[in-house]
Simulated scan of single mutants.
Amino acid sequence: MIELFDSPYDEPLPSADVLSEFQPDMRVAFILMDKFTLAPVTGLVESLRFAADQSFRSHQLYCRWDWITINDEPILASCGLSINPTKAFDLHSLKTEYDYVVLAGGLLSETRQPSEQLLHVVKEVHAAKIPLIALCSSSFVLGNAGILDGRKCAVHFAIRDEFMRRFPKAIALVDKSYAEDKGVFTCPGGIAIDLAANLIRHHCGDVRAQKGLEYLLINNEKNWFNPHKAAVFESPDIYENALVSKAIAYMSDNLSAHVTLKQVAEYARTSPRQLHRAFVASTGEAPANYWRKLRLEHARKLLSNSNIYVTTIANECGFSDASHFILWFKKQYGETPYAYRKRRHGVDMLKIIKSI
């Protein structure tokens, strides 16, 4: 008999067969370097753990991860904690089985001059177009591999000067909790929960991202999805095409206005046809779809952080009426605005705690 809990995240305990055959939405390999910093690794993996199933049993269903060391030996964190690898090192596996490869660094003595083997691994993974995530000082490893040339890189203020001397072709940022540039993520330290939440949101959806934030007691969302702190997926500055960036900025300033794409093109000093081509090349989407997503994201934030009527939100976000807004919101987020607001505002943490 399956035991059910009174929790908004309940699910039955899956059988062993289901666990072995289930295809996750997100797979992550952590390559741990000697004296790695524990905090960002913990923030990232704990967020994955909460997103990995609907309940709190820590089954690796929707998210899976492995601990890997280059020599297959246990590794010490900078605080002295010893971690045993859970999977043998295999370069082919790193290039074919994971959505992200995380390089966990820490003390500069271990990352200033990485081994040739590690540099080879990083270059091979990058060449295979697997996104790399550099935590803490492992940005030095990416710099030594030449991967950060011409890319934005979030670094800690304490090591910025040395980083810029060593890697003058990289674009060092000290005011971001993380940055993403063409599939390369850099996180200067901290607890990396905002990075984790955006990765989970991208792969697993808003519900699983929010689940981790709520249980980790990160309840004020605007502090964790702040464009001034992090270069998130939807940020206009990730696109190098000046025309696209200009158009997105105009769209963002006119979310509630009934402005046509022709007017957007005129503002960007181009034609609608050229605007469409530029958007598809830079974002993979038509400008109308991108603009709709901007409006829906703005609506989602209003639902989360205010008690404004849904009809009013629809109008403020540029939709013709509430029905039109509800239709597109459900298509984008898998639930109605009413259900989203109820879940976001009405989670009873005592019930969640009872379900553990």
Score class of each variant (00 low, 15 high):
Asp6Gly: 04
Ser7Gln: 07
Glu11His: 04
Leu13Met: 09
Ala16Asn: 12
Ala16Leu: 14
Leu19Met: 14
Phe22Thr: 07
Pro24Tyr: 03
Arg27Cys: 06
Phe30His: 08
Leu32Ser: 05
Met33Gln: 12
Lys35Ser: 13
Phe36Glu: 02
Phe36Tyr: 13
Pro40Asn: 02
Leu44Glu: 07
Leu44Asn: 04
Val45Trp: 04
Ser55Pro: 05
Ser55His: 15
Arg57Gly: 05
Arg57Ser: 07
Gln60Asp: 09
Leu61His: 06
Trp65Thr: 02
Ile70Lys: 06
Glu73Thr: 00
Pro74Trp: 00
Ile75Glu: 00
Ile75Gly: 02
Leu76Asp: 02
Ser82Arg: 15
Pro85Gly: 06
Lys87Gly: 02
Lys95Ser: 15
Thr96Asp: 05
Thr96Gly: 08
Gln117Trp: 00
His120Thr: 01
His126Ser: 15
Ile133Gly: 02
Ala134His: 12
Leu135Met: 08
Cys136Pro: 03
Ser138Ile: 08
Ala145Phe: 03
Leu148Thr: 04
Leu148His: 01
Gly150Trp: 01
Arg151Asn: 05
Arg151Ser: 03
Lys152Gln: 12
Ile159Phe: 11
Met164His: 11
Ile171Thr: 11
Leu173Trp: 02
Asp181Ile: 00
Val184Cys: 06
Gly190Ile: 09
Ile193Phe: 11
Arg201Asn: 13
His203Gly: 01
Cys204Trp: 03
Cys204Gln: 04
Gly212Thr: 09
Leu213Lys: 11
Tyr215His: 08
Asn220Lys: 14
Asn220Ser: 13
Lys222Val: 13
Lys222His: 10
Lys222Pro: 03
Asn223Val: 13
Asn223Leu: 15
Pro227Lys: 13
His228Pro: 01
Asp237Ile: 09
Tyr239Thr: 03
Tyr239Leu: 06
Ala242His: 09
Val244Glu: 11
Ser245Cys: 09
Ala249Asn: 11
Tyr250Leu: 10
His258Cys: 06
His258Ser: 15
Val259Met: 07
Thr260Ser: 15
Leu261Ser: 05
Leu261Thr: 04
Val264Cys: 02
Ala265Val: 08
Ala265Asp: 03
Val280Ile: 14
Gly284Pro: 02
Gly284Tyr: 11
Asn289Thr: 12
Trp291Gln: 05
Arg292Asn: 07
Arg292Asp: 02
Lys293His: 13
His298Cys: 09
Ala299Ser: 08
Asn307Arg: 05
Ile308Met: 11
Thr312Val: 15
Ala314Tyr: 10
Ser320Arg: 14
Ser323Thr: 14
Ser323Gly: 12
Lys331Gly: 04
Tyr333Met: 12
Glu335Gln: 15
Pro337Tyr: 06
Pro337Gly: 05
Tyr338Val: 14
Tyr340Leu: 09
Leu350Arg: 13
Ile353Val: 15
